[in-house]
Design a protein around this nucleic acid. Structure first.
Length: 575
RNA sequence: UGUCCGAUGGUGUAAUUGGCAACACAUCUGAUUUUGGUUCAGAAGAGUCCAGGUUCGAGCCCUGGUCGGACAACCA
């Protein structure tokens, strides 16, 4: 059972542990075994540039690129831009940026379906010439009426049996701009009684007098998705055209069209469908996401609460964590809802290893160390990441007055409260053990200050008996006089419902989490953060992972976004 | 009422192609810890939608159901 077989099929190069194949990989290996495409694997990611990419697209991107990588193939980026009414260059640019940020590089230049318009037109002509396409003069309502229903056959168009010559003439005139929008369409002649609605003489070209973001005014007829996608795959020699499940019913049409154009000896693409990603506590619909943006329910496409790639980036997600996530969720054909906790897990897993630890106090409470000289300060050495010694150490100032977290003090503390309370001791991380001697309050009874004493012999790492004493709690802190001010945004999930789009009786907007954003303006961070560049990632010790906002944070005017809190079994226990 | 697709712990994904269901997340213990983090050890949780059939043996094959999803845009 240990002996390796001599001939391993075209498996991934590189010593990757054997993992079971997903169904797409099985298809690919089967094709490879049958020497179907001369051993070549070519995939593509084909977004329509009509919006921003989200985490669901990330799944598809990771899938397409990793499939190609695994079988020594390549991946194209192709913009499916056949509908000039919805598409914009702004989106083209954001999509390219997002893919690169995720860590992928497509083969050669980005491609555009619009670059193939000439070829597509030639193919349409070919269908017309062979009697497999005809021009229909009817308007969309009439065509829709004749389409039938899923359970009832359609009826044939009165224009279905025009002569080839007439079709040719009409189609040419469509192209030449002799007709207005909607006056004519080109249809494939297939089968009006097919149980598959997409085979009932689908429209393959329509008239649209509209400037295209790339081809300008060259065309006033545009191919429909079904008459563009498969051929584009074919032009690019895509071997495996991976798309989501809703296109499954399009596959017969995809194949029908290819049947009529295919040239022997060329690579023939194969469409394979997988289940799109659903994530709990969020929505994935472009339309709904757009609504959030347009109604100012979020600050934009890159609002850190958005499931867009640019939003996740601004929130502080790492590309590696998203790739890991995509790999972990796998790919199959059944509908699924992934728990956001899994996304957060791969994030924390990555950040735990890579994010330097720093101290930041979000809700400061002043602590005066009464027996520490007022004019004294000392710089204490502290590790940057206990998970990775190579990340080194830094120094942090300690002085007479410090800030601790308000949550880290309780006047009447339960026995399990390991933090500061009257007459109790805690360790200040990397510093000293202090004891709370006195609680100062204002006239309203609010705690304004704590007076503590410190044990001078308890300095961390000093090796003294006192330094080795076990105290139950360790707090983060910041020296008051050295602290740097910062604004911190505490983000939480955008929706308080697991499936915001899944309620018939409730609009998803009603389910927005009212506490999804809390802004704190009085935060105190350690001085080493003073010059933090935008998009820097840190672990605020004991609090969570935070990053400097890539748009608004500047050295001297720090704005942090909470990416994700640390796991917290304490507050969980107290719920 | 049609066609296509799917159904495995709370959530995902596996199961050497027929050999008594594994991994991850989530949950819960305990240990370690100068982060109530991490790490480590462990627990609980499905008998694979249902009913038949084939077989020595079925999550995998067959038959018939049930449930869920997709499809009737001159969108992609």
């Amino acid at each position: 059972m240990t002996a390796e077989k001599k001939e391993t099929p075209a498996r991934p190069a590189g010593g990757e542990e054997k993992k079971s194949l997903n169904f797409i990989e099985s298809f690919i290996e089967e094709d490879l075994k049958n020497n179907k495409n001369n051993g070549v694997v070519m995939t593509r990611f084909p977004p329509e540039p009509n919006g921003y990419l989200h985490i669901g697209h990330a799944k598809s991107i990771c899938l397409n690129f990793s499939l190609a990588q695994r079988y020594n193939g390549k991946t194209n980026l192709r913009f499916d831009d056949t509908n000039p009414e919805k598409e914009e260059v702004e989106y083209v640019e954001s999509i390219m940026e997002d893919i690169n940020w995720l860590g992928f590089q497509w083969e050669g230049e980005a491609r555009f379906t619009s670059d193939y318009f000439d070829q597509l037109y030639e193919w349409a002509l070919k269908l017309v010439n062979t009697g497999f396409a005809y021009v229909d003069d009817q308007n969309s309502e009439d065509i829709a009426k004749q389409k039938g229903t899923p359970t009832q056959a359609g009826t044939e168009s009165p224009f279905r049996n025009r002569s080839i010559e007439e079709n040719l003439d009409l189609f040419t005139r469509m192209k030449n701009g002799e007709f207005k929008n909607g006056e004519r369409v080109l249809r494939a002649k297939i089968d009006m009684s097919s149980p598959n609605m997409h085979m009932r003489d689908p429209i393959i070209y329509r008239i649209l007098h509209k400037e295209h973001h790339r081809s300008g005014n060259k065309w006033c007829i545009y191919p429909m998705y079904d008459f563009a996608h498969g051929q584009s795959d074919y032009i690019e020699s895509i071997t495996h055209s991976v798309c989501t499940l809703e296109f499954e019913v399009h596959r017969p049409l995809y194949d029908w069209i290819l049947d009529h154009l295919y040239v022997e000896g060329t690579i023939r693409p194969r469409q394979i469908e997988f289940a799109r990603l659903n994530l709990s506590y969020t929505i994935m619909s472009k339309r709904k996401l757009l609504e959030l943006v347009q109604k100012n329910l979020v600050s934009g496409w890159d609002d850190p609460r958005m499931p867009t790639i640019t939003g996740l980036r601004r929130r502080g997600f790492t590309p590696a964590s998203i790739r890991k996530f995509a790999d972990t969720i796998g790919v199959a054909k059944r509908d699924n809802v992934i728990d956001v906790a899994l996304l957060e897990h791969s994030l924390r897993d990555d950040l735990n290893r890579t994010a330097p630890r720093v101290m930041a106090v979000l809700n400061p409470l002043k602590v005066v160390i009464t027996n520490y000289p007022e004019d004294k300060e000392e710089w204490l050495k502290i590790e940057n990441n206990p998970e990775d010694e190579a990340m080194g150490t830094r120094e942090m100032p300690f002085s007479h007055e410090i800030y601790i977290e308000q949550d880290d003090f309780m006047e009447d503390a339960p026995k399990k409260f390991f933090r500061l309370a009257p007459d109790k001791e805690v360790r200040l991380k990397a510093a000293y053990i202090i004891k709370c001697e006195e609680v100062i309050k204002d006239s309203d009874g609010n705690i304004t200050e704590l007076r503590c004493t410190y044990d001078p012999d308890s300095k961390s790492g000093s090796g003294t008996e006192a330094s080795k004493r076990k105290v139950k709690g360790t707090l983060h802190w910041v020296s008051a006089k050295h602290a740097v001010d910062a604004k911190v945004r505490l983000y939480d999930r955008l929706f308080s419902d697991e499936d915001p789009a899944g309620h018939k009786d409730k609009d998803f907007k009603e389910l927005i989490n009212p506490d999804s954003l809390k802004t704190l303006t009085n935060c105190k961070v350690e001085p080493s953060l003073k010059d933090a560049e935008p998009e820097s990632k840190y672990q605020f010790q004991r609090l969570g992972y935070f990053c400097t906002d890539r748009r608004e944070s500047k050295p001297g005017n720090l704005v942090f976004n909470r990416t994700v809190p640390l796991k917290d079994s304490w507050s969980k226990k107290n719920k």
